[in-house]
Design a protein around this nucleic acid. Structure first.
Lengths: 154, 154
DNA sequence: TATTGTTATACTCTATAACTATA
DNA sequence: TATAGTTATAGAGTATAACAATA
């Protein structure tokens, strides 16, 4: 009897030629591995993005960070709440604008982030090992092109 | 006064070197454009994936399709319900196993899918135009490697 | 015993709208 | 008038567990 559940004989048709579909499958797999690596830190890919921006750009506002990451500022609230509750990030009143909060890593956050980055780099190396000489800068360049492409509305 | 909301001067640090982060940004952008192109069809990237598998592999069970797409079979229920309510897909009783449903495109679904593919190919061409000679097969190959990589648990 | 479709459920992510305090 | 942070809310996507029918 034919095995209707085997995925070996599946014809993916056009999906095998679509960059978007392949991007999706790759992104899900690499994010799952990231999450496994960083679960002991309690850090998800989204939290890591915020931490990385704060670490390199201390004093930015929540809205600036949301814009940098392409997210809505409303989503920043619970993220920063979580990072503050973990004693990794702190909100400080902005000197120039009393509406906004300036974000900084705490002293513990600085140490935490360094250990976290070491784990992230292990994860990254595992995937980078799949790429041949010169392929990593090339795929990052291609992904930048795709990420920044804004087709004209029709 | 310094503009804390400009994303021009942001230092992305390690994020600029992480394939996972770049994949995420690229995938979000290309999925948004896909959704805009296909909104008049009422089709999301996820629905398109199911349709493409059904069209090329008529008679597969819901579980087989979920496995092919890397999703859980429980998520197939509402997806197939939606596609049936749109008269695009139909569940037929499996001849060999009365537990399972065999999925097929309806006659209208066949026409619908052809028109949909034409729109998807416009979307795809817009992004493929960003890639130079030989880069598309290369990025698809790299994305396949990343999608299929299963690091040993540590 | 195992699998299929299903249901109920829950969790994350994301986005929108509206409010307040400030600018 | 406009903006920052916040709150409430809602939708999509995804996953787990359990159940009835069937294998």
């Amino acid at each position: 009897m034919a095995n209707l559940n085997s995925s070996e004989d599946i014809d993916y048709g056009i999906l095998d030629t679509l960059v978007g579909y392949k991007l999706r499958r790759a992104q899900v797999n690499i994010f799952n591995d990231f999450s496994e690596h960083c679960s002991r830190f309690g850090i998800t890919p989204g939290l890591f993005g915020v931490l990385s921006i704060v670490e390199r750009n201390p004093g930015l506002t929540q809205t600036a960070i949301a814009n940098a990451l392409g997210n809505d500022r409303s989503a920043m609230v619970s993220v920063v709440d979580r990072l503050e509750s973990m004693n990794i990030v702190e909100r400080k009143p902005s000197a120039s604008d009393r509406r906004s909060h300036a974000l900084f890593l705490t002293p513990h956050g600085e140490i935490f982030y360094k250990e976290l980055v070491a784990e992230v780099l292990k994860h990254e190396a595992s995937f980078t090992s799949l790429l041949n000489e010169g392929e990593k800068p090339l795929i990052i360049d291609m992904l930048d092109r795709i990420a920044n492409h804004k087709p004209a509305k029709q």
